[in-house]
Design a protein around this nucleic acid. Structure first.
Lengths: 247, 247
DNA sequence: CGATCGTTTATGTATAGACATATGAGCGAT
DNA sequence: ATCGCTCATATGTCTATACATAAACGATCG
């Protein structure tokens, strides 16, 4: 038993969590390099003096987070990181602005209910025809435009949206409270402001902007497409990555 | 038994996976709204005709991904989504270019070993003084520059990097093979190309560019800071979000 | 009436055993 | 040498059981 020196006995931590932590430690420290075969379940069973289910729970968890790969008959191996997966937190714009210590203001610029055009349907990946709501609004940080929001909402998926004016509440927070979310795809790119965007954001035409587009589905149905355009200097997205575990 | 119509009997899917999928379905479809109490383990045990451990595995998994919250003595409840977290896959640039069907080429522009300047240390959040390696390289997609890479590597954390010329292999893939990663932070923003960047990327000064900066740590030590600058039209980051599960 | 204490209950953790399944390795026949 | 076959083995899944623990509930007592 050589584990006494590496752990603190007093903590009420469960055994499978400790096994998981021990193995993560060795992988992240580089002691067990990618490709290394970690001990078999029955070996860990012996080392920790516990049943196989306990070891299995820890290893399954490690496999789920992508730190190891399990192969029947061969054992479990430290994975070589192929593509790093970073977690990008998508906050409400109001919170973002207020965290900067600036007063937030929201303004609806246009509001149009229309029969979905082919362009609308392409943006939302909506296959059937149907009415859509097209919104255009601006979010301000103090006196300056912080971001331009161009949004389409499928009224097939969210008929209640037709009754909402969106004068007081931004479509983002409204949707969060009205639609169960199931999937979203974000596309992030840079672009030069065209004349319309430049006017809306108060920047020169051609000025660099960060564009975040999001498509959202709810149980297979496209719900909304939104494009946020930020002047280059107003916004930075931050994504964090810790391979050991989520949450 | 009202489940026969919702599932396909032929698939060799495990029972706990099916329980997990069934419950996810009901939450994501909105049938079970946030705050709703999902059946107790012993009720699901009866419904599915299985042992409690099997049900427990499914529910624990749901709790881990954040879809439900479990409370002792009270039961398990559907969680209200607070902030969306999207998963951003960070790929190797070579793979990115090749997936576009273009020939990839890498070119080292400058390579300098130096005593870390205060600016270097600030970028890496390195607190002690120490030698660093400063690299500047370009990645090409066909004839056109795809991206400019400006990188600092702490030689305290990775002394072996001093021996590597980085003429043939890009620092990114080299580091992946030599340093166990433990944490990374990405900052994504748009910017206008300054004269130097414009020259390196073959674009007009002021042209919009997407900038991805990454800081990486290995077991608490800063390892590297890298800034990738892409011409606006060459690159889009994609982040996906599925609350049901990762991977 | 309110504080305290035991009881109940659902989850949390762990066990020992069982069978399924995929797959690498070795063996044998062609 | 190559193609199949069998066999051993590590993981994948599941069961029935057990005890621990946190928290809500209710009854009892000051």
């Amino acid at each position: 038993m050589d584990k006494m020196d590496t752990l603190r006995e007093q903590e009420p931590i469960s055994l499978h969590q400790r096994i998981l932590a021990d193995i993560s430690e060795r992988i992240l420290s580089g002691e067990w390099a990618p490709g290394h075969r970690i001990p078999f379940e029955h070996e860990l069973t012996e080392e920790y003096g516990c049943s196989r289910m306990t070891v299995n729970k820890a290893l399954s968890e490690l496999a789920r987070t992508g730190l190891i790969e399990r192969r029947r008959r061969s054992g479990s191996f430290v994975r070589t990181p192929v593509s790093q997966a970073a977690v990008l937190e998508i906050h409400d714009i109001k919170d973002e602005v207020q965290e900067l210590g600036l007063p937030y203001r929201y303004e609806l610029a246009s509001h149009q209910k229309r029969k979905g055009t082919p362009a609308d349907r392409a943006l939302m990946e909506l296959h059937e025809a149907g009415p859509v709501l097209a919104l255009r609004c601006r979010h301000f940080a103090g006196p300056r435009p912080f971001c331009l929001e161009e949004r389409l909402i499928s009224l097939v998926a969210v008929p209640e949206a037709a009754e909402e004016a969106f004068e007081e509440i931004a479509p983002g927070p409204w949707l969060v409270g009205h639609v169960p979310w199931s999937a979203a795809e974000h596309r992030i790119r840079a672009t030069g402001a065209d004349a319309e965007i430049a006017a809306a954001l108060g920047v020169e035409p051609g000025a660099p902007c960060l564009v975040v587009e999001r498509r959202t589905w709810s149980a297979e149905h496209p719900v909304t497409h939104v494009r946020f355009t930020y002047p280059a200097d107003s916004h930075t997205l931050v994504a964090r990555f810790t391979p050991s575990q989520a949450r």
